[in-house]
């Protein structure tokens, strides 16, 4: 359940940024989770809800944007939507060797009072 560790990383990161920017109350946090980043967005959101108590994110609304997975075929260079890391290239049928999108996992922005 690495999502829990990730949730705790988020709190540390936000605390650091809040201190740097002189804010103490976060109203909203926007997080981008790519479909192929290895973190399950739903589990991550639940994990974050579990660990925010008594932190500056306690009252923040958590918005998660999902980025769809993309693959680039190593044989014919076609870009296609990749749901699974083992998806075939829809054009030539070979295995895409490169994941070209959906690996994002980042805090995009905070709204602070």
């Amino acid at each position: 359940m690495h999502e829990l560790s990730m949730a705790m990383e988020v709190i540390e990161l936000v605390q650091h940024e809040a201190d740097k920017n002189g804010v103490s109350d976060i109203e909203e946090i926007l997080i981008e989770v790519g479909d192929l980043c290895g973190v399950e967005a739903d589990i991550f959101q639940s994990a974050l809800e579990m660990v925010v108590k008594d932190t500056l994110l306690e009252n923040a609304s958590v918005r998660i944007i999902r980025t769809p997975g993309k693959g680039k075929c190593s044989a014919c260079n076609v870009e296609f939507e990749m749901k699974n890391r083992l998806d075939f290239c829809p054009d030539c049928g070979c295995f895409a060797s490169e994941v070209s999108g959906g690996q994002e996992f980042r805090v995009v922005s905070l709204v602070a009072e």
Binding site: E9, L13, F105, R106, V107, S109, V111, E113
Partner: peptide
Amino acid sequence: HAPQKVIDLNKDILLEN
């Protein structure tokens, strides 16, 4: 409205690791 600040971060969550 109470004044709000939007802080754009775009920080990788695994950045510290």
